[in-house]
Design a protein around this nucleic acid. Structure first.
Lengths: 178, 178
DNA sequence: GTTTCATATGTCTAAAATGACATATATATA
DNA sequence: TATATATATGTCATTTTAGACATATGAAAC
């Protein structure tokens, strides 16, 4: 049910289409939320049925028509109620890479290095996207507190991960010989 | 399907019961994996059907009987194959707290502070558990590379989160007046 | 003495999430 | 000129996950 609040949170900041939401999740929220377009479109329909959001149809002629969703009063109230009243749940993280570390004792130093390089590439990509987003919104007049906070979180998160990778590489080099 | 590999990874390190796995996820893996006992027991059954793991029944008399699972050769091979051959997927994170930041502009400084205190408590608890686990395994002869790497990751992760919370509190105090 | 927590394993239903299938035009790249 | 990517929205079947229901004893706390 939290997807609903993630969507309300995005729409609260600015009216968006389902297509926009997909991009926002991928480009600026990977380090704290994720979903797929099939789930997003379905949930948006349900939310509109429940009068939490409403849409304005924009006919584009050549490009496909789009639905721009915005919050209703009910939706805004529900979002604030949720944020203030619902107790915070633990973050749910599933990171395959850290599972892979469990078998490092069975691997060659070269294999381990390749796996680490793979995760470094993954995290560098995320960091790059977050920094681009920061640069972009800093140049705009739009300076929502939430955006500033989450962008800084994202940068800190990716940098922490990359620092750990660096340390792990060194640790492997110094402590494993095979 | 990744739950399967998370389980193989845990069992590869040491033979465990389903009950043990539940505790391991909660106490030492929250920052990179999670699952529930219902899913774990079901998956362990399927994995045994597929000959990836096998169990030894331990009759305890007074306490309930338990099944201690260990890897089969097939299971170990499959785990290594997965780790080396399957391309790394993006980490999947769902952190409600960062969703809540989107509505900070609509909240009072007091409400924001309460929300931040809630997340600080959550992360401090995780950090405390991770440090206890580090202390525990450091005192044992058991020093698996994987354990060392993931524990350091966990500490770095929680510390990063808490530092960000501290920064966020200050940012809110300096930039929001209402 | 009673309540709560730990040990230990399971099933079942409902909800959430994934990935494929489906469609159609515009633009950019090779 | 062909191919890939971006725009834009949807459905559907399968898989994964969550949370309740179910059971039973031991130990610790109150």
């Amino acid at each position: 049910m939290s997807l609903r609040y993630a969507l309300l949170g995005i729409i609260a900041k600015e009216p968006v289409t389902g297509y926009d939401v997909v991009k926002i999740f991928k480009q600026r929220m990977t380090y704290f939320w994720n979903s797929t377009h099939s789930q997003i479109y379905t949930e948006l329909h349900k939310m509109e049925d429940n009068n939490l959001i409403q849409h304005e149809l924009v006919v584009q002629g050549t490009l496909p028509n789009k639905k721009i969703y915005s919050l209703t009063d009910t939706g805004k109230k529900e979002l604030i109620r949720w944020a203030l009243e619902e107790p915070l749940k633990p973050a749910k993280i599933k990171d395959e890479f850290l599972i892979k570390t469990t078998i490092f004792p069975f691997l060659s130093a070269e294999d381990i290095n390749n796996l680490l390089d793979e995760v470094i590439a993954r995290e560098e990509k995320t960091l790059r996207m977050t920094k681009e987003w920061k640069k972009h919104f800093t140049s705009q007049e739009e300076h929502s507190v939430g955006t500033i906070l989450t962008v800084e979180y994202g940068i800190k998160y990716s940098e922490m991960y990359l620092e750990w990778c660096k340390w792990a590489k060194q640790y492997i080099q110094e402590n494993m010989q095979h």
